[in-house]
């Protein structure tokens, strides 16, 4: 269970506050106009930005002093999710050990994860020799392997075409089913939210609102969301 306890921060004209909780096992989309603070909210939860007020808690444990890599989250960004100088297997292996010191059992698990996302035989390839879809799969294999209880995605797969992106989201859903992890996904596409997230957080007017059911929100959008959706 993720708790955002009276989070607040402001920089110049920009301000953001959040005060809600996400139950374990839920899949949550974060949508809202660009510049509203979706990515800032993401950064606060992931630990890249310290809020000026409030705390982030996981299962009641305060994460304020926990570095991003030590938080119980796996993260996928919009791009640069793979190191171009490392092979697919090494990029996945980093999820097991950030110093890449892997024993035989670890390497077997890496191979297994790559097999699960359909990349058997691609272990030794570097990202430059993989297609965009294959790169996305390597990222998902790492999430599968780290098996942390919350998966966080910031506009994932946005470089891919619609069909490939839907395929990635389906694969992501399978990975979540298998690991039992919760999901928090920032997106600007209402379609993505409908596809994978049961509930949605709307960020607008400097506030990240408590989650509501995605269908309800998108079918009867409040005025600020209607303006964004057009």
């Amino acid at each position: 269970m993720l708790t955002l306890e009276q989070i607040s921060l402001s920089r110049g004209d920009f301000s953001l506050s959040a005060d809600f909780l996400l139950e374990a096992g839920t899949r949550t989309a974060v949508i809202g106009p660009s510049g509203a603070g979706k990515s800032t909210l993401f950064d606060v939860i992931a630990g890249f930005t310290q809020p000026q007020g409030g705390r982030v808690l996981w299962m009641g444990r305060d994460l304020s002093d926990v570095a991003p890599g030590k938080r119980p989250f796996s993260v996928l960004f919009q791009d640069n999710n793979l190191f171009p100088h490392l092979t697919a297997a090494q990029n996945v292996g980093l999820g097991l050990n950030p110093a890449l010191k892997l024993n035989a059992a670890d390497r077997a698990r890496v191979a297994q994860a790559l097999e699960r996302v359909g990349l058997t035989g691609f272990e030794g390839r570097k990202p430059g020799a993989l297609s965009g879809g294959q790169q996305g799969r390597v990222g998902l294999a790492r999430i599968l392997l780290t098996a942390r209880p919350l998966v966080m995605l910031d506009e994932p797969f946005s470089a891919l075409g619609p069909a490939l992106k839907a395929e990635m989201l389906r694969l992501l859903a399978e990975v979540l089913d298998e690991t039992g992890a919760s999901l928090l996904m920032v997106t600007h596409e209402p379609q993505d939210a409908r596809l994978i997230a049961g509930q949605t957080v709307l960020v607008s007017g400097g506030v990240a609102h408590a989650p509501v059911a995605t269908e309800t929100l998108l079918d009867n959008p409040p005025p600020e969301l209607r303006e964004y959706l057009g």
Partner: peptide, 25 residues
């Protein structure tokens, strides 16, 4: 700027960051 956040998210600090990210890049 390109890979710092990813390395942070994976918990790559100190020597592993130097060996696996900075020196190769």
């Amino acid at each position: 700027a390109s890979y710092g956040r990813l390395a942070d998210a994976l918990g790559m600090g100190g020597l592993s960051r130097l060996r696996l990210l900075l020196l190769p890049r």
